[in-house]
Computed example of a mutant assay.
Amino acid sequence: MRTRALKPWLFVLPALIIFGIVILGPTLYTLYLSFYNWNGVSADRTFVGFRNYADLILHDSVFPRAIRNNLLWMLGSLTFIMGSGLALAILLNKKMKGRIVFRGIFYFPYVLSGVIVATIWTWMYNPSQGFVNNLLTSIGLESWTRSWLAEPKIALASVFVAALWHGVGQPMVLFLAGLQTIPHDPYEAAIIDGAKPYQSFWYITLPLLRETFIIVIAITMVASMKVYDIVYAMTGGGPAESTHVLASYMYFQTFRYANIGIGSSISMYLVFISMLVIIPYVFYTTKRSHV
């Protein structure tokens, strides 16, 4: 009887070992380091308790901005990246010439690494030779030209546009997969009943895509919380620390400024905020799926 009870755990054991080594162990070690003042080289570590966490909240002007930027990035991702992916999926799900080619074109940027995308868009935003300013000048909107990555008020939005171009392919593909599982019968019945296209979309398409939305929203939220590479490669957190997100600020504190304790504290804040956002969503969707 005891052997039978242990058998499921034996199957799970390899995954638990990998999880412990790759995720749980480093997380606990990072939590341990967050209670110390340490430069990463010295043999001496000074225990400071929760002072690193308090200093980030009370005395660090960049940290609250990084949290705000992460939350803005999440809101923008859920609104624009996911919304654009849904719009493209609906458009490319229709019977039209060349739709396979267009699917590949819109999905292609997602295959590129964030650093490559950052390099492309940094050149496009170049104030004197970039495509964006030259395009605005050529259509008579020269007054709209900007140093897109050098102005604190618009730098984060400029980086997000590059991220939108990069990331829209993933939700598009997921929504396409969901749309192709919807039968045609409800749409035919709606046409017979005189429903308009927007009514079919609201009352048929969206409800039948609920399971797909659960996956896309979860993936989008996780990706927006851990965004790093495109921000670091395009602005390095500047100008004037205006585009820092939690991951980039954690990197700077840990490896640029050798504040291991502060960097570890930022990483734990990132874990906590991610859990605060994602766990309620998982509970909500799980509860809805069992209704």
Score class of each variant (00 low, 15 high):
Y110F: 15
V173N: 03
S34Y: 12
L112A: 08
G238K: 09
L28Y: 03
W121E: 03
N52D: 01
R99I: 09
K226M: 11
G40L: 14
E151S: 08
V291E: 11
G49V: 06
Y232C: 03
I273L: 07
F255G: 00
M268T: 02
A163Y: 03
I182M: 04
I266W: 00
K153D: 09
L246N: 14
S84P: 02
L72H: 01
L276V: 04
I262G: 02
Y107Q: 06
S265E: 01
P127G: 11
G104I: 00
F19G: 14
V271E: 04
Q129E: 15
Y187D: 10
P109V: 12
K97C: 01
I266T: 02
I266P: 00
T243M: 06
S42G: 09
F175E: 08
F47I: 11
N37H: 06
Y198L: 15
P171T: 06
F63L: 09
H290V: 07
I230L: 06
I67V: 15
V41S: 14
D193P: 07
G238T: 08
A54I: 07
F283M: 11
V115Y: 02
T205M: 10
F11L: 07
A163C: 01
H59M: 14
T3D: 08
D229Q: 10
Y281Q: 06
V115I: 12
D44C: 00
A233W: 00
I279G: 08
V216N: 11
R65M: 14
L75M: 14
L208N: 05
N39I: 03
Y53K: 13
F175N: 05
I21Q: 12
V245T: 05
L75T: 12
S248Q: 15
N39C: 10
N259G: 00
I105L: 09
P186S: 11
A118T: 10
T205V: 10
G167M: 09
L156K: 09
G236P: 00
R4Q: 01
F175K: 03
D229V: 07
T27F: 04
